[in-house]
């Protein structure tokens, strides 16, 4: 019925793996991550008029996810969202590759959860998703220098947590 809307929905489907990964990096669990993505997608479609055609859909959706994550944390009981979940929850995602390496999904998620939330957001965009500093700073609406110093601090903590 509406070709351009179909196109956008298609692009959003393509973005789902990246959005899921970003959401899991923020929330620390596959279940909470998928809830966040669900919420993000619904909001993005509902507020599509706020998206500027021609601008990047991924950046816009990451920003919505980031904001929803912050809002949810504010309204939820702290202990609940901070909880690291049991190994069972990760089992489905711990595929062969992860088993072969010495780091599991759970190790990585746990190390990210130990970071302060500002650092975790920066890491999720730059080190996990691979966005440039500029793109990540725009999504987080912070100066680029603030972003790089958050990543530098997070790196120290992650190096300790993730070994070597």
């Amino acid at each position: 019925m509406d070709a351009s809307l179909d196109t956008i929905r298609h692009q959003m489907v393509q973005l789902l793996p990246r959005l899921r990964r970003f959401a899991i990096a923020l929330t620390g669990s596959a279940a909470d991550g998928d809830d966040l993505v669900q919420d993000t997608v619904e909001r993005a479609l509902k507020n599509l008029h706020a998206w500027e055609p021609g601008s990047r859909l991924d950046s816009w959706m990451f920003r919505i996810a980031k904001n929803r994550f912050i809002d949810t944390r504010r309204s939820a009981k702290r202990g609940k969202t901070e909880a690291i979940e049991t190994a069972d929850e990760y089992a489905a995602l711990d595929g062969e590759r992860a088993m072969q390496s010495h780091l599991t999904f759970q190790d990585t998620a746990k190390a990210l959860q130990a970071l302060p939330v500002e650092q975790r957001q920066a890491v999720a965009l730059v080190l996990v998703d691979g966005l440039s500093y500029r793109e990540a700073a725009d999504i987080l609406e912070i100066p680029i220098g603030t972003l790089t110093s958050r990543i530098a601090r997070a790196r120290e903590a992650l190096m300790t947590a993730l070994g070597d």
Binding site: R20, Q38, D94, L127
Partner: peptide
């Protein structure tokens, strides 16, 4: 930190359905 298992896994059908059918602005 790349979470390659997440990237390789097909997204849950529920999410795909939401993208395809949730009301648009």
């Amino acid at each position: 930190l790349r979470f390659e298992d997440v990237m390789d896994a097909p997204p849950p059908q529920k999410l795909v359905e939401t993208v395809r059918h949730a009301p648009a602005s």
